[in-house]
Design a protein around this nucleic acid. Structure first.
Lengths: 142, 142
DNA sequence: ATCTTTGCAAACATTTTGCAAAGCA
DNA sequence: TGCTTTGCAAAATGTTTGCAAAGAT
């Protein structure tokens, strides 16, 4: 046999999302994968350009939208700033605590809160599509 | 005695906020007071102009910022849209359920969730400055 | 061959700002 | 009077879009 082309994990993500496999998209996914935290479009763009100078900011936005629609990434709109993105991790939903002084984003999960939300929504006659819980705070002096 | 000038409740709000009492601000507060729901800056501006045609959008934004800083109003940044405002009501914090089909905003309160958040923040070494919980959902068919 | 995706620049939407004139205390 | 606030227009953000060229299947 001739050999099956090696498929990077980024290609798999794109294929699963029903998107064509292109250089810009592969690079953007690589950036997303290798970036800690919750980068915004400008940060993703900057890193992508460092890998391949031909990528445009518009493509970053278009790719983020496509990946978001396919569920591969999540978009967060934290207060007072550009949208930030992160890779979707299946199952474990989590929320965010944003350090008001540093902008640092800390993730946390709490099943009880999740359950309470379901209850609240049901009581109001709604089914939850998604939700967000953000805590904005300051570090306690120890 | 000469008579104490009658003070509208809007003047009181402004005085408490340490702001000068001006026509534009009085009108904006009146709009906020008389508007149901969570208007955005453009809506507030539109209604304010109907009362006094000389008010500008910039003044709406500046007033909202000042009132927010003084705690008289709250600013919400729901996903994908302009900031929306509402009068602050003391004590009873509440959260929002946003109807994805109609944009309608439903308020709810849940003390248990509030308490859990305090716990989470404390465990992470933070004190909460504010938070937001938004549920985005669709009406269940009955 | 056909449909998708890209880069670029221009368009958009929301919010902020510089400045001189007007308003308030 | 002296500091604050306003309106206006311009600028600043963050994001989207039209279009012709390039790329993927």
């Amino acid at each position: 046999m001739k050999s099956a082309a090696k498929q990077s994990k980024y290609e798999t993500v794109l294929r699963d999302a029903g998107l064509r496999i292109t250089e810009p998209r592969r690079v953007i996914l690589e950036v997303l994968d290798k970036t800690e935290g919750h980068p915004d479009a400008a940060e993703i763009f900057e890193r992508a350009v460092a890998i391949n100078g031909r990528i445009s900011l518009a493509t970053v936005y278009r790719t983020m939208k496509a990946l978001e629609e396919s569920g591969a990434i999540e978009r967060h709109a934290f207060a007072g700033g550009p949208a930030r993105f992160e890779q979707a991790r299946e199952g474990e939903h989590h929320d965010h605590l944003i350090d008001l002084d540093t902008g640092q984003v800390i993730e946390f999960a709490n099943p009880t809160i999740e359950a309470l939300q379901e209850e609240i929504a049901a009581k109001l006659g709604y089914e939850i599509v998604h939700h967000r819980l953000e805590i904005y705070g300051r570090k306690l002096k120890e």
